[in-house]
Design a protein around this nucleic acid. Structure first.
Lengths: 203, 203
DNA sequence: GTCTATATTGTGATAGAC
DNA sequence: GTCTATCACAATATAGAC
């Protein structure tokens, strides 16, 4: 960011991110974004002309944040188990800092799946990298064979669901106790890492 | 259902389910529901008085559908591995038939977490059942120790994410090919089952 | 650039005939 | 029970003063 961080535009974007991520496009109100940014509603339109433009700016940024961590693990040259550990650790950390992110991305993509094609293109990530790393370990007899796509989806599901499913988990398993849920979350890195590695390690 | 299935009320509920599950509460329009039910908008209000009432009817039913499968696995008396296999098979089958269900439930619960407390209460499910089954297997030395809550969340994440994440998976890993995504889904039962069992089986 | 006031459209909900 | 017509208000967007 070369510009000053306290410009009106930045304040609007910050506010819009809070509101959109919490309420989604349909649930968000321009008025609420204006309030959150402590400015007038008309200024939103002065800067972004319409709700759609503002939303797109937020979605773009959110998706960048959501995706790169998936990409990193594929790009590095580490051995597979380190790759997995690195990915899970980093990804869960990011999710803990952005708990609304996954639900927002999922919901908005399902609401408008066409959106994704433009965004994917500009990401330049190639899942093949992880495939190569996995094949190496299979050849060395270190792990059982597994389809790299399934492996990545497994890891994503294990990392994401505890965040998206907060209300269900809290309500259903912890009787509404947010503290118990937080404790549960703090165990996830260790739990997911060993769960994944156990499942692909040769017996 | 003791009543006839083709009553107006049923037509409304069917239509509302389609629209709400696809668009969510905020994105759904009474007009669209009326169109889908091939009736007039005023009739919706005659039968349900307001959008909220109609939504609650749908949400209640959807949640019942979403939850019981989680409950079943805890209730049965089978050995653990059979329980797991049974659960994954049934749950993924249900999800394939109701692909919008998980995203709908997640989004609406996050939008209004208070909603869950009333619903959980009436379900009468106790996660302890699976805990007991797991402890049995641990004592018998058949599996490594694992927290039953983590195990259930792991299974849910592995089953649910491929459905909720359809646009991401299709766009990111399969270049937009829905056929490839469908093939991927058809492999999930086997994949998830062996993934889970491998991860907890003693080496 | 920022504000107040206002236009314009969308949407949930009701009135009243049949 | 079902329809057409309409209300009332909420929400996006714009006009125009400063």
């Amino acid at each position: 960011m070369t510009e000053l961080d306290n410009t009106t535009e930045k304040k609007i974007l910050d506010a819009a991110k809070v509101v959109f991520l919490e309420k989604g496009f349909d649930g968000a109100r321009m008025q609420e974004i204006a309030d959150e940014a402590k400015i007038n509603k008309a200024l939103l339109h002065y800067y972004f002309r319409c709700k759609d433009n503002l939303f797109n700016a937020i979605f773009q940024e959110a998706f960048q944040q959501f995706l790169p961590k998936v990409a990193e693990v594929m790009m590095t040259e580490k051995p597979l188990f380190e790759k997995i550990e690195f990915f899970i650790d980093n990804y869960i950390t990011m999710l803990l800092n952005n708990p609304h992110l996954p639900g927002f991305i999922m919901h908005e993509l399902n609401r408008n799946p066409g959106r994704i094609v433009n965004i994917i293109k500009s990401s330049g990530v190639k899942p093949e990298y992880l495939g190569i790393a996995i094949q190496k370990e299979v050849d060395a007899g270190l792990i059982i064979p597994i389809d790299p796509v399934h492996l990545i989806i497994n890891m994503l599901g294990l990392c994401l669901f505890p965040i998206i499913g907060k209300p269900i988990i809290t309500g259903f398993f912890f009787n509404g106790s947010t503290r118990a849920y937080q404790k549960f979350l703090s165990e996830r890195k260790k739990e997911v890492t060993s769960f994944v590695i156990n499942s692909i390690k040769k017996k």
